[in-house]
Design a protein around this nucleic acid. Sequence first.
RNA 1: GGAGAGAUGGCUGAGUCUGGUUGAAAGCGCUCGACUCGAAAUCGAGUAGGCGGGUUAGAAGCCUGCCUCGGGGGUUCGAAUCCCCCUCUCUCCGCCA
Length: 425
Amino acid sequence: MLDLRFIRNHPEVVRDALEKRGVDFDLDQLLSWDEKRRKLLTQVEQLKHSRNTLSEEVGKLKAAKQDASEIIQKVKQISGQIKEFERELDELERKVKEALLLIPNIPHSSVPVGPDESANEVVRVVGEPPEFSFQPRPHWEIGEDLDILDFVRGAKIAGSRFTVLKGWGAQLERALINFMLDLHTREHGYTEIFPPFLVNRETMVGTGQLPKFEDDMFLCSREDLFLIPTAEVPVTNLYREEILPGDVLPIYHVAYSACFRAEAGAAGRDTRGLIRQHQFNKVELVKFTRPEDSYEELEKLTNDAEEVLRRLGLAYRVVVLSTGDLGFSAAKTYDLEVWFPSANCYREVSSCSNFEDFQARRANIRFRPQPGAKPQFVHTLNGSGLAIGRTLAAILENYQQEDGSVVIPPVLRPYLHGLEKIPPS
RNA sequence: GGAGAGAUGGCUGAGUCUGGUUGAAAGCGCUCGACUCGAAAUCGAGUAGGCGGGUUAGAAGCCUGCCUCGGGGGUUCGAAUCCCCCUCUCUCCGCCA
């Protein structure tokens, strides 16, 4: 959510941002509602002021045992008027609030301008894609042959885009989770959180999933609870409606969670393999920082996520998203894309974003810079560190051998009882 | 799920029965000042948030109004206080990993 006062004072900046994102939004409508609202508010406040002072007089007269019926009549009339105006005011406020929740964040000045992902820019390429003396196979074939991935039974018990991990597959998934959590907690200074996987509506609004993207979410309608699409949602909302003391910042949190996505708009895309699932595991990094530090923190966070890929020995590149590809709440995003030999291309395994105060304003997360100072909104950031399923798929493909076996990256072996290779079945 | 108790400022906690300068006593904490070589102790002052209006190029600051005592609605000239609904917390019972 943007600051309404900022929109009022700098409509041209907001208009420019909307255009760069390719978003159609009626800003003039919002501004005229806001102007009407403020005029009405002033009137209502004046009426309330006279009501308050007159009521006080009634109290004084009654205490002095004098007649107050004349004033009481007058105030009754004023109250009626207030009620009438307030109905109108509520309607305007509702409209303004709803509109405000639908305006995306303003892209940072360093973000490349462009209509879609074709305008994204590669920031750096790290590592060499492996050479194969044979035709590398896609991970779903490797996994099924090794009897560690079961797509057929996943579809049977839950539906398409659900997969069963088995044997070394299940253990490799668990190893990846533990490896990432250990790395970020022990070496990068993050505090681990294990959050609820179901959250309420206010929480989903806080991070920006609602109201705009409800169709992409799984909803437990009986309780009106949503399955989280990422741990970003519960973890960012940990401090919703709070004023944090300035000295606790920056806060670094890392959380493992299962993630649930309806993938409503993705019918027919990535139907094979682990790339696009309704349920997947992810280790997520979340930061709360002072405004002046957030862009430096974004670089550090991105580097923390990259470290996972470097240690796993996977070739990857870092891409900065253009204005047309940027997510609704983000001001700047780096995607980490890992090499997939079978597809001969890079695919996203992490998305690291700075939301500035966009989520903090929605969720009302503030801090007091100094004891006694006025509260300010924090900046929030997050990034996958990393998506587990896609990482597992990348390992299967990049470490596959001609005989169908898969070598385990050395850093993971301690998590797999020293296993060096998943043997062919 | 059943029965009961409760939710007040950064925290503890009065006020609710008996509606009226109580946006809220007191204590703690915090900030600033005095004392001190410095600290502790002591003393003094200050210390909730939000939304408007004025001043300003704007911000800060200052002046001013409105709202908020878990959330929403109602009664009343006037609600922390009375009534209704919701949420959460605690205690007891039931159930359960």
